[in-house]
Design a protein around this nucleic acid. Structure first.
Length: 752
DNA sequence: GAGTTTGAAACT
DNA sequence: CAGTTTCAAACTC
């Protein structure tokens, strides 16, 4: 176990010197080759990737968090190791390497699900997020450990998040075994540098200008890293060149990744690839300044976007990034890099919307997410933080981070602190981040599960709750729709106070199976309950139902005592008005009554509308709605639901099929793959409007997809969310047909 | 924090 | 499909 990797590691260094990096640095255009490799690996991997039920964002986050922690630990403990000897780190942690090997082997062997077993071990830890020195050590130990972790986690993630995640994962685990190994080797050395570079990336311009200094100063490691890369020497000179190249590349592409990659070599290729893969995301990312700031961050964000799309995916991606970074080297550097990225990420969040962050759940509905930088950032954050990044929620934190970004570049330590703080705060919930995108942090921040929950609920009754899903299940084992996390397609996270929870990466198989069962029963079971479409307005107009709100509840509520004025009412909770499909009694939904009457002006925009009375409620609801929408309808919200994203994982298969169930779609979209598409139709506009960055995903599939599912297997009123928006709202009239025609299930269940 | 209410989810 | 039970969130005290 140890030996091979070690050997590889050692060799890599030499490789490092030899080709990629050096050449890269010298020439500046290294990207292509590696990136290509990466992509390939990804592709292979991605396909192979198993179906993860949800990739739980949480999981990913945890992992990431781990990474971060690990990184931190490493950094603190072994910052220089990498720099000194890229190889050494790997060697140092033979045990780790072994772990990695196992994981990787398992992953590879298991390819899809086999991983789960292997993953379990690794995953659990990751899930816990709790600081794990061991993990850190693993990572530190070198890429191997790192890889292992990654493999395990990633494997899960991969399984979960086939496509994007896979890509990331790919390099680590299987795929790119060779490549990965080499990359890892290189990465170790490079990673450190990259990490720093990334930090630098935060502000290329500034960095560039300052680069020399920064490199020299802030990143002593950088220099070291470079040395490591080069193995000594000329780091400064090369750095100078490197910097210039980077600056150029950064400016030009906006993909810092390239630069980094070039510098870093190997692992980074992946990054580049990712961007390409998650085109939308990447683009968005690139666009965002913040993105630039963090190469890795970008990666992560991209990944995150893809994922969160699925949070899971995101997490996986992030992991990969982290892994990539880690692998190399120095975990320490990698860690640093990660950290840096994270930090940066955080900042971005702060800067960007992220605060809002982050979206929840899986929510993960995520097309938009992909688009949204915020979403990305959020995801990244989440990932970095751990499962649930809390979303950094705290704006303050975000802001801090933002401000820090620059500082970070210069002053890593401070950044780290921030990151840690963020992590602590954030960890709670990915969902939050997502859901909260707007609300952001409110919820997420909470620490204790119960408290958090309550707090969140109080704070963010509607949206956030979802976004940061945290359940309190006692009997369902979190394997039923009763469980919000499960329903959202995300893994339960630490903040959850559930008992006997099986909704964890460790139990991926169980989760998937259960999910399948549920989907078999009701294909739309995991679809967003509330379909919002800003676009829907027209529909609304059309809709007799009157849902004032653009959005609607997929099934409609059945309230009898709450008058649809409390969260008991899913419509209300979702911030949408009741519609014809609702069977509620005495409907007084502030967002729109079943009869069509609009309570108080809610019609146009529930969120805005509700004002008066229920403003609070309404607002909350609206917020939730937004969140939900996002989650539920990736389309609408960017970030959307991690849930969806998580779902998407499952869907991946669907994707192949072509028409994932909405949930699937959502998830997919989140992941960046398909997601946007779905939304595209109905929600795209909305999402865009809100996020504006939206992927705008390609509508193609979406339309089809969206409509497709409307027919519910179960028969309860299911209108595909998408359809709903698009068609349904209008009501079923014509659209139902369409829905029927569409095979929602296939996409969903089929896979597994 | 404990208990109650509520309605969705699950079951029959 | 309808009725009942189970469940956990939402809510209240």
């Amino acid at each position: 176990m140890d030996t091979p990797e070690k050997n590889n590691l050692n060799n890599p260094l030499s490789k490092f010197e030899d080709s990629p990096v050096f050449n890269y640095i010298n020439s500046l255009s290294p990207i292509p080759v590696k990136s290509i490799h990466v992509t390939q690996t990804f592709s292979s991997l991605s396909f192979s990737s198993p179906p993860s039920v949800f990739t739980s964002p949480h999981v990913n986050c945890h992992r990431e968090s781990r990474f971060l922690k690990r990184h931190n630990l490493l950094e603190t403990s072994k910052p220089k190791v990498l720099s000194e000897d890229v190889n050494s780190p790997r060697e140092e942690n033979p045990a780790d390497s072994t772990h990695t090997c196992h994981d990787s082997s398992e992953l590879q062997q298991g390819t899809e699900k086999g991983i789960s077993t292997g993953d379990d071990a690794p995953i659990k830890p990751s899930n816990e997020n709790t600081t794990e020195p061991p993990l850190a050590l693993k990572y530190n130990s070198g890429s191997p450990g790192y890889d292992s972790l990654i493999c395990g986690d990633e494997a899960n993630t991969l399984l979960e998040l086939p496509v994007e995640s896979t890509s990331h994962v790919a390099h680590v685990p299987e795929g790119s075994e060779k490549d990965s190994v080499e990359d890892a080797m290189q990465l170790q050395g490079i990673c450190q540098t990259e990490a720093r570079i990334e930090a630098l990336d935060c502000d290329w311009d500034s960095l560039i200008t300052e680069a020399p200094d920064l490199l020299m100063l802030s990143p002593p490691n950088m220099t070291e890293a470079f040395k490591g890369l080069n193995k000594q020497s000329n780091s400064s000179i090369r750095l100078g060149n490197f910097m210039t190249s980077l600056s150029q590349s950064a400016t030009n592409d906006g993909h810092k990744m390239h630069i980094v990659n070039s510098g870093a070599s190997g692992s980074e290729h992946e990054i580049e690839d990712h961007p390409s893969e998650s085109v939308v995301v990447t683009d968005s990312m690139t666009n965002c300044p913040s993105e630039k700031t963090d190469d890795k961050l970008i990666y992560v964000t991209n990944r995150g976007i893809r994922r969160r799309c699925l949070d899971f995916e995101m997490a996986s991606v992030q992991r990969k990034h982290d892994d990539n970074a880690n692998p190399n080297s120095s975990t320490a550097k990698s860690d640093e890099g990660n950290i840096g990225s994270e930090k940066k990420l955080i900042p971005r969040k702060g800067n960007g919307d992220s605060r809002r962050c982050v979206l929840p759940g899986i929510g993960l509905h995520l097309n938009a997410l992909a688009n949204l930088e915020d979403y990305k950032s959020i995801k990244n954050e989440q990932l970095s933080s751990g499962r649930e990044p809390n979303l950094p929620s705290s704006p303050s934190s975000l802001q801090r981070s933002v401000n820090q970004e620059n500082q970070l570049l210069l002053v890593p330590a401070s950044v780290e602190r921030d990151l840690e703080l963020l992590e602590n705060e954030v960890q709670p919930a990915e969902d939050c981040t997502q859901s909260s995108v707007h609300m952001a942090g409110e919820d997420c921040q909470q620490n204790s599960p119960k408290k958090k929950r309550k707090v969140q609920r109080k704070l963010e009754p509607s949206g956030e709750g979802e976004s940061c899903k945290r359940c309190n299940c006692k009997k369902s084992k979190c394997l039923k729709l009763y469980c919000e996390c499960f329903a959202a397609g995300v893994y339960c996270v630490e903040p959850c106070s559930c008992r006997d929870c099986f909704n964890k990466p460790i139990h991926v198989d169980t989760v998937l199976q259960t999910r399948r069962q549920i989907e078999s029963r009701n294909p739309l079971a995991f679809a967003p309950k509330v379909i919002r479409s800003s676009d829907a307005l027209p529909e609304i107009g059309d809709d007799p139902n009157k849902t004032p709100a653009s959005a609607r509840h997929k099934r409609g509520c059945n309230c009898k005592k709450s008058n649809c004025l409390k969260k008991y009412c899913e419509c209300y909770q979702g911030g949408v008005g009741c519609s014809i499909s609702c069977r509620c009694e005495g409907c007084k939904n502030a967002f729109g009554r079943k009869d069509g009457s609009v309570p108080s002006g809610v019609e146009a925009e529930p969120e805005e509308e509700t004002e008066a009375c229920e403003k609070g409620a309404v607002e909350k609801a609206s917020q939730k709605n937004e969140i939900q929408n996002i989650e539920d309808h990736p389309d609408c919200v960017l970030p959307i639901t991690p849930l969806r994203s998580s779902r998407p994982l499952l869907p991946l298969p669907f994707s192949s099929k072509g028409k994932p169930p909405r949930s699937f779609v959502a998830t997919i979209s989140a992941s960046g793959l398909l997601t946007s598409q779905k939304l595209g139709k109905s929600n795209a506009s909305q999402s865009q409007s809100k996020f504006e960055k939206p992927l705008q995903t390609v509508p193609d599939d979406d339309s089809a997809i969206t409509c497709i599912k409307t027919s519910s297997p179960n028969g309860k009123r299911i209108s595909s969310p998408n359809c709903d928006f698009g068609s349904s709202p209008t009501r079923r009239g014509g659209r139902k047909l369409i829905l029927q025609s569409i095979p929602s299930f296939p996409s969903l269940t089929p896979h597994h």
